[in-house]
Amino acid sequence: MRIARYALAGSEPQFGLVELTSDGGEHPETIAAITGDPLAGPVNYTGERHSLDDVRLLAPVIPRSKVVCLGRNYVAHAEEMGSEIPENPLVFFKPNTSVIGPDEPIVRPRATQDLHHEGELAVVIGRICKQVPVERVSEVIFGYTIANDVTARDLQAADGQWARAKGSDTFCPLGPWIVTHLSLEDASDLQITTTVADQRTPDDVEVRQDDSTRLMVRGISELVSHISSFTTLLPGDVILTGTPAGVGEIAPGQRVTVSIQEIGELSNPVVDEE
């Protein structure tokens, strides 16, 4: 299933199940409304169905608790940053106020002039868990989505820690939906591609990142197990699994798009803070 969060003009956000043309079903490119929050309990179809062109997709989950991120989890990215792979997983947090959805603008703060994209696979947790053994990690995963770990590189260097550089408002685009049908094995070998284009010439696309999740230093199971060893994970928590090589600057007037095989595409424009 593809579970999305969406809004119609004049209505409150709600969840729905997305059907694409590639599924070969009866209702291609539509979203079927469901009741409630799929992360909180059982849901039912309402009978409403809308064209994807008629709805605004939102971040598929607003974490109730936290976004947990991994640094330097791809060798080539660590090398391009002039860093070594850490002995233990390098964990940091983004506040839930940094989360935005598809097509929402990434806002470059006045304090930075060196804003970077970092396309990543994101894991959505589906149940309360602590100290999860590696062999049981699949039991606590609700699904997968796409993330962009937006980073103010100059603030990262200046501050000596990453709270402001990675936790500012709009610095965690998520979407376009949560995919629940991928196995842990499938998610461990997906192609991640990040492109950047000038919004005035959208067909002139520059490929920045193009690599596979199989190149993670520490895989999904190890990451979830490690994080749950020191902090309780709650339904709706999101884990960003690290970015491959090819990170680079994004600027106002550009659009950055992160695509992940079997999941979809997350695209956001970049604007200056007013």
Rank of each mutant, 00 (worst) to 15 (best):
A197Y: 07
Q156R: 05
R2D: 02
G10C: 12
A147Q: 14
I128P: 15
I85L: 15
R49I: 03
K166D: 13
D149I: 11
P176F: 04
Y74P: 10
E84K: 09
T231P: 03
I192F: 04
R108W: 04
S183R: 02
A251P: 12
D272A: 08
G264S: 15
V140Q: 05
L57F: 04
A59W: 01
T30K: 07
A165K: 01
P252V: 01
Y6N: 02
S188H: 02
Q14G: 14
E274D: 08
A165V: 05
P38M: 05
A157S: 09
V137T: 00
H50C: 13
A158G: 14
R2W: 00
V196P: 11
E273Y: 02
V134D: 15
S11V: 15
I128V: 12
D198S: 15
T180D: 01
K130N: 13
E80K: 10
F15S: 11
Q254N: 02
G219P: 04
Y144R: 12
S65R: 10
T231C: 03
L20M: 06
D114Q: 07
Q209G: 01
T35G: 06
H117M: 04
Y144D: 09
T241D: 08
E12H: 11
T241A: 09
L174S: 12
V99R: 00
P173W: 00
Q156A: 08
L155A: 14
L174N: 14
P28M: 10
R2V: 02
R110T: 05
S11E: 14
L182N: 01
E79M: 12
I220Y: 07
V99C: 02
I3E: 11
E84L: 12
R2S: 03
S212M: 09
K66L: 07
T35H: 02
T232W: 11
G246S: 09
F93Y: 10
F142E: 07
L184R: 02
D204N: 09
P42Q: 12
A163D: 13
Y74D: 02
L121F: 02
E118K: 07
G36L: 07
L70H: 01
P28A: 08
I260Q: 05
G242Y: 00
I227P: 00
G119H: 03
G219V: 11
I31R: 08
D114W: 06
E80T: 13
F93G: 10
T195F: 04
Q131N: 12
V55E: 00
P102R: 06
Q261W: 00
L70R: 01
